[in-house]
Nucleic acid binder design. Structure first.
Lengths: 167, 167
DNA sequence: TACTTTGTTTAGAACATTCTAAACGTTCTA
DNA sequence: TAGAACGTTTAGAATGTTCTAAACAAAGTA
């Protein structure tokens, strides 16, 4: 059943997937877990993954749930076993894209909040500023507006992504 | 010239930009440096940035060049000074997008190479496999083809991005 | 040539992340 | 109810990243 050549290919594939995981802001292990499930024609239990990837039970547990959170895997029930089994969500591309989108959106929105705050702060102190300082404040305001415009563009764009990429 | 309120706003803005830098796979300091230049109406020298951000000269030197590499800033020559001065590339959005694109593309291409290698390796050993193993090898091949398809989609999409977002 | 100014490189410190191992809690089984 | 089988949590180890400080290199100035 176990062929060393086939196993080697699988192991190297998971390794590459691990690097992709890191790039996506997840951990290496998350990527490896997904790859292992992606290359399996049946659901796998934690013990198996621990064995295959040579990782600890704790790490497997934590990371598989992280992966679940991102919609990368789902728990499946296997009759006759008390273990948790998992299978890969086959829609890999969607997972990757969602990971990206929410990552960007999160940060963009966080920034939006900050900018609003700054603009208010500027307006508040504007009157007490010298002519020179007023000029600077005005300059800042323009820059902030520019950032906001950028955020709007990004948000609009993110909304288009799924439509465009799944045509 | 220095107004504490204005300075506070600038400092908080650079702080947020630092977090954005991290999200983009650059360092915090890179983000902060860009923000500082972005909010300045004149080119700044390294000493000034060291002073403002309370970072070391070495860090400033290394990170400003990283930023330069990504097209975020450019060196400008200021008459009467031997120092290097920098100014922000005003096209922030383009920088961010380029950063993303090349980051993804790099990884996708790296993966493509790996997949090709795997497919060749599979073809090579195919004959020496048992019936059961052959089935597994076939299964792997299908999966690899799926990954390749995904990569093609992503590449196509990345080519569209600039057209769509700058309309 | 000696000194100053400026930017770069690098060894190691500080920090953040992610892993492991072990303790723990829960649920099932005998 | 005792023990086994699992998954989860957590303290600390291992690892990786990015910073600082200091030595260094280069190039101008006196």
């Amino acid at each position: 059943m176990e062929n060393p050549e086939l196993d080697k290919i699988r192991d190297e594939f998971t390794e590459i997937a691990g690097q992709l995981g890191v790039r996506l802001g997840l951990s290496r292990t998350v990527g490896q877990l997904y790859a292992l499930l992606f290359l399996s024609d049946e659901p796998l239990c934690l013990d198996y993954m621990v064995e295959r990837l040579k990782i600890s039970k704790g790490s497997a547990s934590t990371n598989i749930r992280e992966l679940e959170k991102w919609g990368g895997v789902r728990k499946v029930w296997v009759k006759g076993s008390r273990k948790d089994f998992y299978e890969a969500n086959p829609d890999t591309l969607k997972i990757v894209i969602n990971r990206f989108k929410s990552g960007i959106q999160e940060r963009v929105n966080e920034m939006s909040g900050g900018i609003d705050k700054f603009e208010k702060a500027l307006s508040k102190i504007e009157n007490s500023l010298s002519v020179e300082e007023k000029k600077k404040a005005q300059f800042y305001k323009e820059k902030f507006r520019k950032v906001k415009k950028m955020q709007t563009l990004i948000n609009t764009f993110l909304k288009i992504i799924p439509k465009k990429i799944f045509l």
